[in-house]
Design a protein around this nucleic acid. Sequence first.
RNA 1: GCCGAAGUGGUGGAAUGGCAGACACGCUGGACUCAAAAUCCAGUGAUAGCAAUAUCGUGUGGGUUCAAGUCCCACCUUCGGCACCA
Length: 833
Amino acid sequence: MGKKNYCPKMIEAKWQKKWEKDGHPKSRGKKGKYYILDMFPYPSGDGLHVGHVENFTATDIYARFMRFLGYEVIHPMGWDAFGLPAENFAIKTGIHPDKKTRESIKNFTRQIKSIGLSYDWHREINTSSPEYYRFTQWMFLFLYKNGLAYKKKAKVNWCPSCQTVLANEQVIDGKCDRSGDIVIQKDLEQWFFKITDFIENTKSKTGKKIAGLLSGLETIDWPESTKAAQRNWIGRSEGAEVVFCVVDTEEEIRVFTTRLDTIFGCTYVVIAPEHSLLGTLKSTIANYAEVKKYLEKTKKKTDLERTELNKEKSGVLLEGIEAVNPFNGEKVPVYVADYVLGTYGTAAVMGVPAHDERDFEFAKKYNLPMRKSIVPIGGKNKEKCFTEDGEVYDSGEFTRLSSAEAREKMAAWLKKEKLGRKVVNYRLRDWLISRQRYWGAPIPIIYCDICGTVPVPEKDLPVKLPTDVDFRPDGESPLARSKSFHQVKCPACGKKARRESDTMDTFVCSSWYYLRYADPKNTKQFASKKALKRYLPVDFYMGGAEHTVLHLLYARFFTKALATYGYLDFDEPFMKLRHQGMILAEDGQKMSKSKGNVINPDQIIAEFGADSLRLYEMFMGPIDEMKVWNTKSIIGLRRFLEKVWNYFNDYIEYKKKYSEAIGGGEKQLSSLQRTIEKVTRDITDLKFNTAMSQLMILLNELKGVGPKTADEKNKGGEIFFDKKEDMESMLILLSPFAPHIAEEIWEKLGNKKSIFFAEWPKCDKKKITKEMMKIVVQVNGKVRAVLTLAAETSEEEVRQLALADQNTRAHIAGKTVRKVIYVSGRILNIVAT
RNA sequence: GCCGAAGUGGUGGAAUGGCAGACACGCUGGACUCAAAAUCCAGUGAUAGCAAUAUCGUGUGGGUUCAAGUCCCACCUUCGGCACCA
């Protein structure tokens, strides 16, 4: 017969053109809004990655599905366009980052459109455009005016190769997460955002509760691993601060401990090299020369060297200094040692070698005494160093209390004596956002000799990036070298002043972009209240797991800060979050340009078609699990689409010849209903791989089985449904996965409007026929027979038939039947001994 | 060390405590073809057997249960996050 072969190239081009012209079909939104967001990509010069395709296809299927169900779906796309790669490229080639970025965006857009994704292109944003970064600067001013952005001199992470400071979150194992260079510490004056203000619950200015970064995690549907990583990163730890007075001085050492119950075992105190006491007690320390040498040695170490594990601890005794344990009045020696961090807690700890591994090591090296103050409950302390909770031992009035009780009672005692208190410490530091680089949003601040730090008035925003800049980094922001940019008049007094020349961390831009999509063309506000109320928060967010602490934590901080001042009426931005699993190259390694194992989606589309690529990536496995790419396997999905194509073409041909119904029997109708049920449930649960399987199973059942249709001889025969609507239901189920082929067949079936205006089929349970039931007969849990019986067969009959089965009888022979378990319609287990 | 996730054929992966391996790739055999590709049909966990069938089999060792990939306990391995954080 004269049917045309499936030609994705033509079909896909045709529909993409139509969607481009008319926009994607959208539902009327009877059921309200649903905001589905992808983590917006950095438009790199390398183009789209198969990981992007995985992420975007998954949300596209979900978006199309939700539209079918009648939701107004917000599904935007945009560009996280500031950042180092474009700037480094510019340094190498002289091509301006703006030009390069525009080219990359163009390429990304082309690629995204070539896979048939149904984005709301009218909402497109670009963080490097002045229209966008104007509001990034507004965000900075908002934080600044409310005391949430501040400048301070601090020890900061400096990447010598990127020539800029980095946030703590951008330092991985002591190395820069971009260049991999070892990060060094520098004392610099830099801008910080006060993220630490939002760790615990707070109240908005109108008294509304704002869930903290910690407790807010309980209210959102995120992967447990991501929540755990955020909790880890915040690093909340409950303990106590204890005052150790320094003998013969007015000074005191406050130590932080989570194990106050072990304090009677304290035999010394250690302070960090950064501790202020080393300055104030300089003259009291008898061996200051030696101490000074130690401090200089430590200062030279990078953080990486200093925190290297299993390294022998070192320290110096502060001669002439003694501290008093407030609980027993004992005088203990004081050491300075670099295993105590200057940036955590009070920069001082008490040494309890009997109950802490690190103290144990240190004490062994410097011959310090050990004193036991905790014993295991119901056992003897055999280990040299017992670090678990137990029962307090030899500790005055606290002896015999459990560790937990002792911590409470001891803290109460400290409070009463004014010698300390309960304290909570966090690992999370404020977010350092200054960058000494060009390709970012300028910080809208002006420094005036008379007025000091002056925020740029809102009416003067955006502070535009100058274009006449030499962007080679040299430790100072390239913006400082642009006189037109740098030298300005003070907005307060009009005298000569200078502009802040640093730019903001690109993560600032991406911390609020999801709000901008609600109202992307607004020139007065980052988004109108009305639009925010209508579209936010994001209902479903999807993106890579590499953003668990950086972007996702910062975005939550922004939301909470804005909510505090009444700009938002929700305190968590992303209600439901999922990560797509990483796709490894065929060799099982991470895809990378240097290894030459990167798969280019363009090539796959050219060879197999976009629908095949979409299907393949969804069929690979569970969306959130790591998967290995295998180009060979794509053919299976392409074959499936060819079968779909041929099947519907045969149907169309058949309808031309014969008007009477020939169609499928009850069995096929029943399969269709089950498929509707399964596919609907699987898309809801984001189980796209099994939804695809079910569609394949249905097609396999319709092809190659049953009575032959009139003209098909050499084939196994194909079964069509009597009703056109059943044929169409099948196609609708497939359409979110493979939109191009679905539209094309839909049109061939004689429909004038897009398939995406159709109704999602409903499972008609009445049409699911009770087929013959299959009863598995087991003897002692092992399958011995399978009985096919009418659905209404009674339990008694099933029993009798099972016991009559030959193979069953052979296995019971010589044994006594003790018990028979019957699970209705499923299984019958005979227990015989 | 702490926190989190996961270990199933040759491969990717399916399995509300109830037939382990759905679906797909690959492979083997057959049909079609001068031939090949494509397509179609059949088979495909291991071992034994012509077969019916039997035994073993979901990282390891125990346990609960009529019945465990699934639940409980202990361990091993891999991946991800944190880590001299007191």
